[in-house]
């Protein structure tokens, strides 16, 4: 099967520090892939490179929309989003002075067009677009199960709901690949279970592929079809959950080396 995202030999240096060291990764259509590793292994940096917040020092990032190859290196974050990669953030970054609905409406920014003149004269096209955004945003909220909060300020939501709202907002950009940065962080077991279902639902119903950074191993093992493990910026293993669970290198990275006597 053809990949939809392919990262080849990506390296990211910050001055003398090599945060990511020639990492390869590929995701196929409809796959749920997890990126795991100890704290500070470079997982979030990896996300930032793909989504355009950083430009990788070397290596290539390709996406294949409609079979055509496109290189993502050096594109601005908003362009990457427009191309169909949407992300959430490890430390929640909602627009705090906006309501839940408005947060999702912002997600529609990339796929709408109204400009200054449209805003001032508010013609039929602008009005129709506005209605469409609202309808679509509400639809997404319903899907994610946040419709009861629709007019609530985003900041007033319970923690788990804020994380789900981030996902809703990302979905509004019409992505083919969703990058989730620790979506279960700080959630209680009940919320994590709901998240598990939600991610599966997004993949199964919308056919959106998912790349996931997560520390909750139960969630990772139950969801992902393929797991990449990084440590100190290097990829140390890849494979199915079963393979990763029994991989001695991975166990060493997580638990430390056994001392021979």
């Amino acid at each position: 099967m053809k990949p939809i995202l392919e990262v080849q030999n990506m390296t990211m240096d910050f001055g003398g520090l090599r945060a990511i060291d020639s990492v390869d990764l590929s995701i196929e259509k409809g796959q749920i892939v997890a990126l795991i590793g100890p704290n500070g292994a470079g997982k979030t940096t990896f996300f930032n490179c793909i989504t355009g917040i950083y430009t990788p020092t070397s290596g290539d990032i390709y996406i294949y929309p409609r079979g055509k190859e496109e290189r993502l290196n050096g594109l601005k974050p908003n362009i990457v989003t427009k191309k169909g990669l949407a992300r959430t953030f490890q430390n929640i970054r909602l627009f705090t002075s906006m309501t839940v609905l408005e947060n999702v409406m912002i997600g529609c920014h990339a796929i709408t067009k109204a400009g200054i003149m449209g805003a001032i004269f508010r013609g039929a096209a602008t009005k129709a677009e506005e209605r469409l955004i609202v309808k679509k945003s509400y639809g997404i909220l319903e899907k994610i199960g946040l419709e009861k909060y629709v007019d609530e300020l985003a900041i007033n939501l319970p923690y788990g709901a804020q994380r789900r709202l981030e996902i809703a907002r990302a979905l509004a950009t019409d992505p083919f690949l969703l990058l989730l940065d620790e979506p279960a962080a700080g959630m209680n077991p009940q919320e994590t279970m709901e998240l598990d279902e939600l991610i599966l639902k997004i993949r199964n119903r919308e056919g959106i592929s998912i790349l996931l950074i997560e520390h909750d191993m139960k969630l990772v093992m139950s969801l992902s079809e393929k797991i990449y493990v990084v440590d100190y910026g290097k990829k140390i293993a890849e494979g199915t959950p079963e393979e990763i669970r029994n991989n001695p290198v991975v166990i060493k990275a997580y638990l430390g080396e056994e001392i021979d006597e």
Binding site: T51, I53, K76, P77, N78, T81, K82, A86, R87, F89, R93, L94, F95, T96, S97, M98, I106, G107, H109, A110, I111, R169, A170, A172, T173
Partner: peptide, 15 residues
């Protein structure tokens, strides 16, 4: 408003 609230997040939303 989004840009005022959070620059990085609004860019990630395609602004």
């Amino acid at each position: 408003v989004a840009l005022k609230d959070d620059e990085i997040a609004s860019q990630a939303m395609g602004i």
